[in-house]
Amino acid sequence: MTKGASPAITRSRWFMTAFCFGLGLVLLAVNWLGGQLVGGLVSLAILTAFGLLISLLTPHSETVRGLTTRRDERFAQIDLRATAVAGLAVLGTLMVAWMVAVAQGRNGHPYDWLVATSGFTYLAAVAFFRWRG
């Protein structure tokens, strides 16, 4: 029943804090390279605070625990569905942005590439899971 559950490292309560802090450091470095140190520091602070909040909520919320440290099959399904919904939202937004750009006489970059990437990724995923599923 626990097949597909999170690896041991992600079951640690503080994994999200460490992950968000690491991501914040990457954003800090990227912003620094772009000459926006303040923006990077703000990103680091926001991400660290978010990770800390999740870690602090973990012992008190079964939902947070299910989505972070103790993922079972139902939470894995919830996560998959939520990811699909988020992906659809992004794809829909990209398509609208692309159409607006084209309607305004622009060439639609970079939305056309992003929409195409989404479409090809979907087709590749269908082909893969048809083969592997």
Binding site: M1, E73, R74
Partner: peptide, 11 residues
């Protein structure tokens, strides 16, 4: 006993 969350059993 099942290795799942209480919420899953409840659902």
């Amino acid at each position: 006993a099942m290795g799942v969350s209480r919420q899953t059993i409840n659902s």
